[in-house]
Computed example of a mutant assay.
Amino acid sequence: MKHRLFLFDLDDTLLDFKASERLSFERTMRELGLQAVPDGLFVRYQAINLALWRAFELGAVSKDFLKVERFRRTFAEYGAGLDLDPQAASDLYLESLPNTVVLVDGAQQLCETLAGIGEVGIITNGVEHIQHRRIRASGLHAHLSFVATSEACGHAKPDARFFNYAVNMARAFSHQETVIVGDRLDADILGANRFGIDSCWFNSGGQANNSEAVPSCEATRLQDVIPALRALQSL
């Protein structure tokens, strides 16, 4: 395998964020005294949260604003019948996330194998102190050389400045020997394209690529990542 530096997105690549998100959201609502979560509340929260993260990646909103605003907007849509404190919801939710970690199938073995070949690092736009706690809770930290966060960098994926920040944390770096594995075309793969490194799109849902991002290879399971990377050598 030609690659020696493996950069992994965290959420919905190595960790099943969707599962953790639902568990933490439901726990937060219960702790706020909401015994029965209204139909569609979590789905609406997800849509609002996703839109705000996209805005953050474009530099339109701050992460501190996002963390509370997603709950404020969600609660506001349900009117007076959902009189809950968005700041309290944000605090409870973030505290819950490290306790609801779910690994994507094959994540532990993949990181362990690649750490034996080269160097494995995490690149994430998530909340820094929460991501570090989640990584430790998952057990993945044993195989990692570094964790690069947009919060510490000051720039988020897909900005090339974030990728430059990340690779400078590695013991060694060359464009030809570096690859990113991630699920987001608009953040992970597009960022890799702009930075001039290989990318493996973790497309677990078998989605069509209708974006400008061009992955070097694709895998629908983490177990398929290494074969996909090895196949790049023959191209």
Rank of each mutant, 00 (worst) to 15 (best):
E128K: 03
A156Q: 08
E151V: 00
L140H: 09
G118V: 08
R136L: 04
E151G: 00
H143W: 09
T124L: 12
H132P: 06
E119P: 12
T149V: 15
Q131D: 02
H155A: 09
N125G: 12
I123Q: 05
A142I: 07
G126T: 05
L140T: 12
A148H: 05
G154I: 03
I135Q: 02
A137L: 11
A152S: 02
I130E: 04
R134F: 10
I135S: 03
I123V: 14
H129P: 10
S145A: 11
G154Q: 01
A156I: 09
R134I: 03
L140V: 05
R136Q: 11
A148Q: 10
A142F: 03
A156M: 02
L144G: 01
H155R: 15
I122M: 13
N125Q: 10
I135D: 00
H129Y: 07
R136T: 00
L140C: 11
V120Y: 09
G121R: 11
H141A: 14
V127T: 13
H155N: 14
R134L: 07
V147H: 04
E119D: 12
Q131E: 01
A156C: 07
E128L: 08
S150Y: 07
E151H: 00
E151S: 01
I123C: 11
F146H: 02
H132Y: 13
E128G: 04
L144N: 03
V127W: 06
H129W: 11
G126W: 12
F146D: 01
E119V: 14
E128R: 05
H155C: 07
I130G: 00
F146E: 02
R134A: 08
R134G: 04
G139Y: 06
C153F: 01
H155G: 07
L144M: 07
A137I: 03
I122W: 12
E128Q: 12
I123N: 13
V120H: 00
E128A: 08
Q131V: 00
H129S: 08
S138R: 00
G126H: 08
I122K: 08
L144Y: 08
V127S: 10
